[in-house]
Design a binder for these strands. Structure first.
Lengths: 152, 152
DNA sequence: TGGGACACTATGGGCGTCAACGGGAATAGG
DNA sequence: CCTATTCCCGTTGACGCCCATAGTGTCCCA
């Protein structure tokens, strides 16, 4: 398995450390990530975490923008400047910095959420709220389908 | 037989374990699933369970979306983040985590329902209620009345 | 055709292993 | 010199592995 799947909640200890789920660590190693990079999500109180290839996705997007417009500049600032490296200690833990706490609202517990090629870090309560909203939006997509059909 | 068919109810033991019906286990083995993945159903208090190929359909669908729009994010969140792995122990049992219990309402017993390429996990009472509703909807279709109307 | 041995499944429980977690000591950095 | 980070160790609890038992259905043979 080489994708980040499933989700887990871990406690933060007195030193601000939190264990990355063993399953995720296995994926990190399998993908050969030497270090993790965490990016503040644009519109969510969460961090996107992955290898440096996480940036490829955004850089491709930036390349589509007109370099003379502000949008490209904003995007570059966002993905190159609004992130932080996460070092795994030898027990597989990372430290929750204020930079992360401010954006996510994380205080005592951290929810790790697989997203395929990367994973996310959430404050568990906010994650639950967002999950309910996302679920409701997807259900609306289904409105147009016929009775008895199972889309997706 | 390589499809998941029929249904069974099993008891959960003191450790939270429950036996997957032998017939389903045989299908799992025949299909070569090394591990099971369980996904929270969008609109039902049930889990869809199958191999990782369960995700293929969703991922193909996601690939059609603009990856920077919310819809793609919602879909990825649903299929990558709102699932969990189910490990079969060597006696063919799986463990009912809180993640599953919260969504399904499962507490003491589990209903396994074959769905062809995958199967579902239900709280038996809710399954019965849902089955009655589905049956009623089909009857209405047959009698030509519109959903919401009372037949007869 | 009835009885019984056998096979298999579901279920319960003991136990070892490992991940998560807490905390002290060493180290680096300011 | 003080603080923050890193390393390392011990503890604990969850989970996987293993064995035992009971209930049930099957098959064979008398």
């Amino acid at each position: 398995m080489d994708r980040f799947l499933s989700n887990t909640v871990s406690r933060i200890d007195a030193k601000g450390r939190v264990s990355v789920p063993a399953h995720f660590r296995a994926v990190v190693q399998k993908r050969g990530y030497s270090e993790l990079y965490a990016l503040r999500c644009l519109d969510l109180p969460a961090m996107d975490v992955g290898g440096l290839d996480l940036l490829d996705r955004y850089e491709q997007r930036i390349a589509l923008e007109d370099p003379f417009l502000q949008t490209a500049d904003d995007m570059s600032f966002f993905c190159h400047g609004d992130g932080t490296f996460l070092k795994l200690d030898q027990d597989g833990r990372i430290t929750m910095s204020d930079f992360i706490r401010e954006h996510t609202g994380i205080s005592a517990e951290v929810a790790f959420v697989g997203r395929g090629n990367f994973f996310q870090i959430w404050e568990p309560g906010r994650l639950a709220a967002y999950g309910a909203q996302a679920r409701a939006r997807l259900l609306q997509l289904r409105q147009g389908t016929k009775p008895g059909e199972r889309p997706e």
